[in-house]
């Protein structure tokens, strides 16, 4: 069981393609952290033409204190679910920040230091419902983020989806959570690496 920890502007960017459910993912993750974990959270997102077909994104700032500036400045965690999004936002990751990609869709990462799971493939293969991919990511993020609790996130999921979708989405959440548990070590992930190019690849699956 994780315990709430002191955060000072932890910035997350969720990015990908329109239709992947990025905005919903942001809302559920933010809602869980704000209402369930008691953090201050601001969630902003890209709107309009930018959000169509091309890159879609949702930004979260998580903090133990009141958040003044609601947008992200230097990203602690970038989740890139498309190649374009990975290219577009990689440069905003702060030193020591983490990149998490859909390793099925993001073939080229700008750095060797990243975490990856083939979220889309997993979802299609195991759940047969590609739309649930964002919740698989949510499960993985819940494992990865030291301050997110699975119990709380599942509740957030239930609270923001109609009852008839609960079963499927909780399954998706569990899939992401357990796959991430097999693949990632959160402690290691959040320990700053001295050198990006030490050849220590941590590509998983």
């Amino acid at each position: 069981m994780k315990t709430a920890q002191e955060l000072n502007r932890f910035e997350i960017r969720l990015s990908g393609t329109g239709g992947q459910g990025i905005i919903t993912l942001g809302r559920i993750l933010g809602g869980g952290l704000a209402l369930g974990m008691g953090y201050h959270v601001t969630q902003t997102q890209s709107y309009g033409p930018e959000a169509r077909g091309g890159a879609s994104r949702s930004d979260l700032v998580v903090s133990s204190r009141r958040i003044s500036y609601p947008k992200t400045e230097s990203i602690d965690l970038l989740v890139a679910l498309s190649q374009e999004a990975c290219y577009a936002y990689y440069r905003f990751i702060k030193p020591g920040g983490v990149l998490l990609v859909d390793s099925g869709l993001v073939r080229q990462t700008p750095s060797n230091v990243f975490l990856g799971l083939p979220f889309t493939d997993l979802t299609v293969r195991k759940l047969k419902v590609p739309q649930a991919m964002n919740v698989v990511v949510l499960g993985a993020l819940t494992w990865l983020l030291p301050f997110a609790e699975a119990r709380v996130m599942k509740q957030a999921l239930r609270d923001s989806l109609p009852p008839k979708l609960h079963e499927l989405n909780l399954k998706a959440f569990q899939l992401g959570y357990s796959e991430a548990r097999k693949a990632f070590d959160p402690h290691e992930a959040w320990t700053p690496k001295p050198d990006d190019d030490d050849g220590d690849e941590r590509i998983v699956l």
């Binding site: 942001g26 809302r27 933010g30 809602g31 704000a34 209402l35 201050h40 959270v41 601001t42 969630q43 902003t44 997102q45 709107y47 958040i67 609601p70 947008k71």
Partner: peptide
Amino acid sequence: DEITAHTREK
């Protein structure tokens, strides 16, 4: 403004 309107907070 658009930012205030489209920011989610508790």
